[in-house]
Each structure stands twice: as C-alpha cells, then as structure tokens.
Computed example of a mutant assay.
Amino acid sequence: MFIKLSNIVKNYGEGINTFRALKGVNLEISKGDFVALMGPSGSGKSTMANILGCLDVATSGEYMFEDVNVFKLNRNERALLRRYYIGFIFQGFNLLPRTTALENVELPLLYRGVNKHKRRKIALDSLEMVGLNGWENNTSNKLSGGQQQRVAIARAIASKPLFLLADEPTGNLDTKRSVEIMNILQWLNKDLGITILMVTHESDMAKYANREIHFLDGNIDYSKGSL
C-alpha cells in the first residue's frame, strides 16, 4: 500500500479544553489514485490533509508512506520527505508576486541544489506541460488567476513528486478556469501516474477524482458512500 493511516487521532489543547479534530481515522491510498477529500468546515479534512502532507503530526496512530513510518521521523526528516516526494498546490497560489513564472517554478529545485542549467530546463518543461509555454518571463502579478494556478501546478510537479496534495485548487477561480485546472490534474494523474489527494468543498470538482472520502465530526462519513 502506498499510503496507509491507522487509528489517527489529533487533539488540540489540553485537559477540559481538548478538542479532538480526528477521532481514530483509518485511510488507505493506492499508488496512482486520485482522491477527493470533502466535508464541512470543522469536519477534520484539512487536519487530515496537513498530516498527509507532513505539515503536522498526529497525537496518536500510524502513518506509513510506502515503507516509511512517518511519525517516527524527526522534523528535518519529515522536511526532506516533503521536499523530495510531496508536491503542494494551494488555493491562494502562494507565488512570489514580482518574480517570473520561471523563477517561481525553479524555487523548489533551487532548494534541492539542482544546478541552474538543469533546473531551468525542468522548469520550462513543467510550464509547457500546463500550457504556459511562452509565459515564463511574465511576473506572477501580471498573470490571471487561472495562469497563476497553472504556475503553481508547474512548480509542484517540477520536482517529480510521488504524491500531490491539492488544497482547494479551484477555490479562487471561475467555473471555466476551474475546469481547465481539473483537466490538468486529471491528466497528471492518468498520464503521469501521480497520486493526488485534493481537498475540496465543490462536488462538481470532486467528480474528477476516482473516489470521494467525506469527513464529518473528525471521522470518515461512510453514509456518504466514502470508499
């Protein structure tokens, strides 16, 4: 199994003020899967996404990423796991505003120590994959919302991640641009074999995934047909 979470509990606070965000969640994700994580605000889906992305750790439970027990890694080791194996796409794009599309895509490769010539080629190839060939020298603050999200996707895939975590990737886009972004994500999954987990509250966007997992009150809501 590519990803397996067992009895995941996440508490915030202590004593009588403890809030249990996750209440013993079990979840498996196969390599090449495309999963939509859904649920109302406060359901636990964002907490689960943060744990899957190694941005947070659970209070208890086990998280296996291929053959690695993630919760036994220290902070630096989890950072390396994120850097080399996990890509992130955020609702707010998170691009540097006065930096070119090319430079934004090169950034994670710079952190990896990839030399200038190689990272430029990888970044250009990634931009071409998302339909931004010829836009590489435009600064992000001069691109449309849809183009900025394409740059964010190019940045995420430039490091060739095994696992792509997309947090509300169409949340700031109109319907037409949302469909364009979802088509790209579907292509990345089907053609490149990248495993994707997408957090979304939009049922129309969730239909692009292979399966939907609904959260409610800190656990998986199987009444919604979650698989």
Results as ranks from 00 to 15, higher is better:
27 L>R: 02
216 L>A: 14
14 E>Q: 13
194 I>T: 15
200 T>G: 15
102 L>N: 01
95 L>W: 04
47 T>C: 13
157 I>D: 07
24 G>I: 07
98 R>T: 11
61 G>C: 00
216 L>M: 14
8 I>R: 06
36 A>K: 14
122 I>M: 04
165 L>E: 10
6 S>W: 03
120 R>K: 15
141 N>G: 00
128 E>A: 11
166 A>P: 01
96 L>V: 12
5 L>M: 12
145 G>Y: 09
62 E>L: 07
192 L>T: 09
68 V>K: 15
199 V>M: 01
114 V>C: 05
11 N>H: 12
38 M>P: 07
43 S>K: 11
84 Y>R: 09
133 N>S: 09
200 T>C: 14
148 Q>Y: 07
171 G>D: 11
12 Y>Q: 09
44 G>S: 03
95 L>M: 06
147 Q>H: 01
90 F>V: 02
124 L>N: 05
7 N>Q: 14
74 N>F: 10
217 D>A: 12
48 M>P: 04
106 E>W: 00
86 I>A: 01
180 E>T: 11
173 L>Y: 07
97 P>W: 00
1 M>K: 15
37 L>F: 04
125 D>F: 00
41 S>A: 15
22 L>H: 06
65 F>K: 02
70 V>M: 06
171 G>Y: 14
157 I>V: 13
28 E>D: 11
164 L>A: 09
140 S>H: 09
189 N>H: 11
59 T>P: 02
175 T>Y: 13
52 L>G: 10
115 N>P: 10
9 V>I: 10
147 Q>A: 07
199 V>R: 03
10 K>D: 01
136 E>C: 05
48 M>K: 06
102 L>Q: 01
25 V>P: 01
95 L>V: 04
188 L>A: 03
15 G>H: 10
188 L>P: 01
136 E>F: 06
81 L>H: 07
17 N>F: 15
201 H>C: 14
115 N>I: 13
203 S>E: 15
126 S>P: 05
193 G>I: 10
